[in-house]
Amino acid sequence: MKTFLILAFFALAASAIPIKESERVHGENGWYVPQEDGTSEWVDMDVAEQWMEAQELLEGRGLTTVPVKFYLYTSSNPTKGTKITTTTKSIDGSHFNAAHPTRFVIHGWTQSYSSSMNKDIRSAWLSRGDYNVIIVDWGRARSIDYATSVMAVGATGKKVAKMINFLKDNHGLNLNDVYIIGHSLGAHVAGYAGKNTDGQVHTIVGLDPALPLFSYNKPNKRLNADDAWYVESIQTNGGNLGFLKPIGKGAFYPNGGKTQPGCGMDLTGSCSHGRSTTYYAEAVSEDNFGSIKCGDYEEAVAKECGSTYSSVRMGADTNAYMVDGDFYVPVNSKAPFGMIN
């Protein structure tokens, strides 16, 4: 089935009048879609959207499977996760404690629950005290075909929402204590989770939300600022693998948001894209990323926001109560990346 759908995708592309290379604008009239080998292939926006609409119908009819697993880590089991399911027996047999805040962490394309970003963010939160850290492992992220992974984002988000709703309805989870943290495609999974919870979760943090095959002009099909009471985006490879335009109520642009120091040539953008997860883990544990308030995101990208630090720190818990707008974030080229002690 998957092979057939991929062939159908390229058949659509072949039958359409392609946009000239000189007229291509990534994210505006099409996308450079990443491939497994690190290269990218251009797809016109209208072709991609036709294909995705057809795929959504198949997803909705249940013709494809979207396996999602959840692994709980707490101060009682900080390094060995307990697999949990939406059953009372499973939750009662785990270390889940509704009196403690809960953090869901969602990886991106090609990754799994054992990926380093999950370990780093999990360790950062548990270093701060008692938390339920739930790592989401979604199998369709590991498809070698990026577009196929994209089509699983909505269904995966709904499964995350189902777990949140189950914990709320049966085990005392307070939505005001819930953060959903997602990287790349996982950021949009977090958005769909927020759209489908019974009530609004407190915070979603989008770590360089993926740009290919997502349109800024269709916020209902991606992470957007209304998916939680507060949405923060940390944008590190904007205009390439991630969005450049602001996604969150609070949008942070380390080094201007396009490329990151210490990443060298970074032709594919993968280093800068991944830095969002490294920065966030450090922000949680160290609270050391000072920021400069900008008039708009274009000022942040141009690094023309002045030199006066605001009182806002990227990734801080207090941001939900005081942040609205776009921020430039100076960073170092190696750890510690934050510049404020």
Rank of each mutant, 00 (worst) to 15 (best):
K258L: 10
V178I: 09
K83F: 10
A193Q: 09
V312E: 07
T88Y: 10
N170A: 14
F327V: 07
Y321L: 13
M52D: 02
P219T: 01
Y146E: 07
G325Q: 09
D266K: 05
Y309T: 08
N255A: 11
G27S: 04
F243L: 12
G257Y: 15
N217M: 03
E36I: 00
N29I: 15
Y253E: 01
F9P: 01
E23I: 01
T64F: 04
T102K: 02
G325D: 12
K83R: 13
N29A: 13
T3A: 11
I144H: 14
E59G: 00
A316V: 14
T64L: 04
G290R: 08
N132I: 04
G199Q: 13
N255C: 05
A228I: 12
N255Y: 03
V201G: 15
F243Q: 09
N217H: 13
H273I: 15
V136D: 10
A251E: 02
D44P: 05
L58D: 00
R142I: 01
R24W: 04
K89R: 10
A225F: 11
F337S: 00
G269L: 07
Q55K: 05
Y179I: 09
E298C: 10
Y131R: 01
V205S: 12
N170P: 05
I106F: 14
G27H: 06
Y113L: 08
F104W: 14
Q111V: 10
K303Q: 08
P212D: 02
G338H: 14
R122I: 15
N165A: 08
F10C: 01
D120A: 05
G264F: 05
F252G: 06
F9K: 07
S307V: 12
N118P: 09
G27E: 05
Y321K: 12
T203L: 07
I17F: 09
D198K: 11
P212N: 01
N29V: 14
Y253K: 04
E49T: 04
L211V: 09
N165C: 08
G274I: 07
D145M: 07
G242A: 05
I6K: 03
E28Q: 13
P67I: 07
N224H: 15
D324N: 14
W31L: 06
A152V: 00
M322V: 08
E53I: 07
G186C: 11
Q111C: 14
